[in-house]
Amino acid sequence: MTASSGIKFFSTPPHACSYLDDRKAITLFADPQAPMNSTLYGQLSLYGFRRSGNYIYRPQCQDCQACIPVRIPVDAFEPNRQQRKTRMRNADVEITSVNANFVQEHYDLYAKYIHIRHADGDMFPPSIAQYVSFLFSDWCNTRLVEFRHDGKLLAVAVCDFLRNGLSAVYTFYDPEEEKRSLGTLAVLWQIGEAIRLGLPYVYLGYWVQESPKMAYKTRFQPLEAFMYQRWQELPPDA
Rank of each mutant, 00 (worst) to 15 (best):
M1Q: 09
S4K: 13
S4Q: 13
S5N: 14
P13K: 15
P14K: 13
A16K: 15
S18I: 07
Y19R: 03
D21E: 13
K24I: 03
F29P: 05
M36C: 11
M36R: 12
N37V: 07
S38D: 04
S38T: 15
G42R: 04
G48W: 02
G48V: 01
F49L: 13
R50S: 00
G53K: 07
N54V: 10
N54Q: 03
Y55H: 14
Y55N: 12
I56G: 03
I56P: 01
P59C: 09
Q60A: 15
C64T: 05
Q65I: 12
C67W: 09
C67D: 06
C67K: 06
I68P: 09
I68L: 14
R71I: 13
I72L: 09
F77K: 04
P79V: 01
N80T: 05
K85C: 02
T86M: 07
T86H: 09
R87C: 15
R89L: 12
I95C: 10
S97P: 07
V98L: 12
V98Q: 11
F102V: 12
V103D: 11
E105S: 10
H106A: 11
H106M: 05
Y107G: 09
Y110L: 07
Y110G: 02
A111Q: 12
I114C: 02
I114M: 09
I116D: 07
R117I: 07
R117L: 00
D120S: 08
G121N: 03
M123T: 06
M123C: 10
F124G: 06
F124V: 07
F124H: 13
P125Y: 02
P126L: 04
P126N: 03
S127E: 10
A129N: 14
Q130S: 15
S133T: 14
S133W: 06
S137N: 11
D138V: 13
C140S: 14
T142W: 00
L144K: 10
L144R: 04
E146R: 07
F147V: 10
K152P: 00
L153N: 09
L153D: 06
A155W: 01
V156Q: 01
V158E: 02
C159Q: 12
D160Q: 09
L162N: 09
N164Q: 10
G165K: 03
L166F: 02
S167T: 08
A168G: 12
V169E: 01
Y170M: 05
Y170H: 02
T171N: 04
T171K: 03
Y173W: 11
P175C: 03
R180G: 08
S181C: 15
L182K: 14
L182D: 11
G183T: 11
A186E: 04
V187Q: 00
V187G: 01
L188D: 08
I191E: 08
A194W: 09
I195T: 12
I195K: 14
R196W: 00
G198I: 03
G198W: 03
L199P: 08
L199H: 07
Y201A: 10
Y201T: 11
V202P: 06
Y203P: 08
Y203I: 00
L204T: 05
L204G: 06
Y206T: 01
Q209I: 12
S211I: 08
S211A: 13
K213R: 14
M214C: 12
M214Q: 04
A215V: 10
Y216D: 06
K217A: 11
K217D: 08
T218L: 14
T218F: 01
R219G: 14
F220N: 05
E224H: 11
M227P: 06
Q232D: 13
E233S: 12
L234P: 00
